[in-house]
């Protein structure tokens, strides 16, 4: 990612928008007992397009903002989202995926990592109450909803971040593909 003042403004506004949308709308919309989580999707998308260093920085900032806005224990969300951002960024750097449907499994894996790790951190910080098995249903619903909205959400974030990206993995993948040969009448695949 190109480090410039406009990059900070873009990423900062994206994170604030995601946190406000999450706490004031998405968290209040219960679908089959659960709800989507835009904050982890935003962190995963930025890490996917910008890499591991940007991913962990954005994860920390998003967690900090989320804890400030929701009144939860400060530092817990930052810790987990830092790890999520770094992991997604490393995945992109090592595998270099460019398939158009890749955001769906990446979003699902990031969300599953977030809900499971956050639950583990909450247990370590002493929950102090019984935990219902329905927690697992809520986690599954969140992962499914995030998988469904991952592709449009990643596309939207890529468009916003594009001017600040030093390397766009999607464009890179497109350029790497060999153009299929065209026939004399100019139609690809019809070599006649």
């Amino acid at each position: 990612m190109i480090v410039a003042p406009m990059t900070f403004v873009r990423v900062g506004l994206l994170l604030i928008l995601a946190v406000i949308l999450q706490v004031s709308a998405v968290s209040q919309t219960s679908i089959f007992g659960g709800h989507a989580d835009l904050v982890v999707l935003t962190v995963a998308a930025i890490a996917y397009y910008a890499g591991s260093v940007s991913g962990c920085a954005v994860g920390f900032a998003a967690g900090f903002l989320l804890d400030l806005a929701s009144g939860a224990t400060m530092g817990a969300s930052s810790l987990v989202l830092t790890a999520i951002g770094y992991s997604v960024g490393r995945f992109r750097e090592l595998r270099d995926p460019s398939h158009g449907l890749m955001p769906a499994p990446v979003g699902a894996a990031a969300t599953a990592g977030w809900v499971l790790t956050f639950a583990a951190v909450s247990f370590m910080l002493d929950v102090g109450a019984r935990v219902s098995p329905l927690v697992i249903r809520d986690m599954v619903v969140t992962v499914v909803l995030n998988t469904l909205i991952a592709i449009p959400w990643f596309v939207a974030i890529r468009r916003i971040l594009r001017p600040s990206l030093s390397v766009d993995p999607v464009e890179l993948g497109r350029r790497r593909q060999q153009p299929r040969s065209a026939g004399p009448i100019g139609l690809r695949g019809l070599e006649i």
Binding site: S24, S27, L66, A69, S70, A72, S122, V127
Partner: peptide, 9 residues
Amino acid sequence: IARAPTVWY
């Protein structure tokens, strides 16, 4: 106007 996003809080 706002709700915590996790079941843990």
